[in-house]
Design a binder for these strands. Structure first.
Lengths: 295, 295
DNA sequence: CATGAGTCATGCAAAATTTGCATGACTCGA
DNA sequence: TCGAGTCATGCAAATTTTGCATGACTCATG
């Protein structure tokens, strides 16, 4: 049994006449007759009733006709789906994402990817930078999002976007009255810092900038996640330096002001993946990510 | 693309080595290599990554592997289902049945058929004798159940069972006291008669027997259906001659007594079908019916 | 660093399969 | 009775598939 047999049988069943079916299939009648005979022998049942004016379907033939159509459409689907998989438009991608990554650019990018490749199942895994690198190596994720990654030989890091830094203040704080806030004004202010993940991290970067301005920051509290940090700001614990994307988290009693100095302090949002990963799905994902970088 | 390509690909995907797969398929390695190449060209995507130790699946290959397995199992199923259809064990059978046929032998037979051929969809249609013959000719039903069918050249009638006749009486009737009731005792009793369908019918038969006993029956009421007739008996309208199977209908206030004379009056329950219908489904249905006749 | 075992790919002739032509056997309506 | 139309079959030609020999390449190992 063969796809050719199925196609032939379907055509014969549609024409109810072997000669006409042969014409439609662009072969002559005898080979078509033989194909049907072979098929019947293979199936082990008579599929056609030969009459003087053509053929009729037996019950087995009617059943087989339906099945044959199913099989052929499934075959077409198989080719189509393989094609899509080869283009990275079908399958599954596991994405590592840090706690506060769900604000700002990343969800927009995921949404754009979903529209570009609706048949790819995107699975998000919450993990910090170190866990992402480990998970990439163990192939538990295909791609990760983080900031300030130290160089790793087997990992590629692509900057998706650079973000300015903002200060989160409780609304009764005197600095709220000003517009942009210069970094030096952080001197002496109690700061809530995050995250305490693999170095170099966001805290190191903030401390470094304070030193450049000539003061040691006052660290009121260290927490693991931006949401916790901003919640503490809301209850008056102190101020908090956050990347621009975190300002999308609106909590009552919290205001955000841009932090400035020369040069303007910024932090990257990057996409990381295995250097040896040439899978189409990763490529299609990165392609969407790169359109964001271009903006 | 054909089934051979799919089987080859599945084997290669299982072995991850073309040479070993070829051994399992009992062919040499070069033709298998070519089959995979053909398949890849047909699908329009690379399915395997050739390495020094064998092959790996690409993402398209993984997707195609799943689809190929689906297709092959569907193909096996197609053969199996056609086989079953050829044996009359799969499909649909439309059965014509008269109103009071749902008591007694017919439901037992339908149950037995359901167990014998669980994949045949049995569709019941309520219709009287004349409608059944018409529906058979128009192929709206495959088989019908009825009694006392007059000969029709294109219809075969097979007796499933012969049933004795019973008298339905309201419980306060004097004849309830006796055991079997002789036909002659019906003289002068008001009778509820059914059904008034195509002749010859059950009424004709009853009247004929009355005349043989030398009296004209007193017909209190004619109704179309046994259920109505027995309901009228329950409310004291009169007595009713019913086939044995109808005694399975128990209504409060109704008693049944066997009707006797010499020879014992009986009526057939028969199965009818088109003489030119040689479909396997009908045969499988009749086979079950015939086991009932044998009892 | 050379070697060798193992892999998949390819050229080519032989084998197997499929096709088309000619024709047969049969049915059915004019 | 005949003729047009159907499916079936014998046979040689065309096509496809196969196996053998061999090539190109990778990688572990001495």
């Amino acid at each position: 049994m063969d796809f050719r047999h199925l196609k032939s049988f379907i055509t014969v069943a549609e024409e109810l006449n072997i000669g006409r079916a042969a014409k439609r299939l662009c072969i002559s009648q005898p080979p078509l007759t033989r194909q049907i005979q072979q098929l019947e022998e293979d199936v082990g049942a008579s599929l056609l009733i030969r009459t003087a004016r053509g053929v009729e379907l037996t019950e087995a033939g009617r059943v087989f006709l339906g099945e044959a159509r199913n099989i052929l459409s499934l075959a077409r689907l198989a080719v189509e789906r393989s094609h899509k998989a080869a283009l990275g438009k079908l399958g599954r991608i596991d994405v590592g994402i840090f706690g506060s990554g769900i604000f700002g650019t990343i969800p927009k990018m995921l949404l754009a990817y979903r529209q570009a490749c609706p048949e790819v199942n995107v699975v998000l895994h919450s993990m910090n930078k170190g866990e992402q690198v480990e998970a990439l190596r163990q192939r538990r994720i295909n791609v990760g999002f983080n900031r300030l990654l130290a160089y790793e030989p087997d990992i590629v890091s692509e900057v998706i976007t650079m973000e300015g830094l903002y200060l989160a203040l409780y609304e009764s704080h005197p600095l709220v009255a000003t517009g942009d806030i210069h970094w030096r004004e952080l001197a002496g202010q109690p700061l809530v810092m995050f995250p305490s993940s693999t170095r170099p991290n966001f805290i190191d970067r903030a401390i470094e900038l304070c030193k450049l301005e000539g003061f040691e920051p006052v660290i009121a509290q260290e927490v693991g996640d931006a949401v916790y940090a901003i919640a503490l700001v809301a209850s008056g614990f102190g101020l908090c330096i956050v990347p621009e994307s975190a300002t999308n988290l609106r909590l009552p009693g919290v205001r955000y002001r841009r932090l400035v100095r020369d040069p303007l302090p910024m932090v990257d949002l990057s996409c990381i993946y295995r250097r040896d990963d040439d899978s189409a799905i990763l490529q299609s994902f990165l392609d969407v990510g790169r359109t964001f970088r271009a903006e």
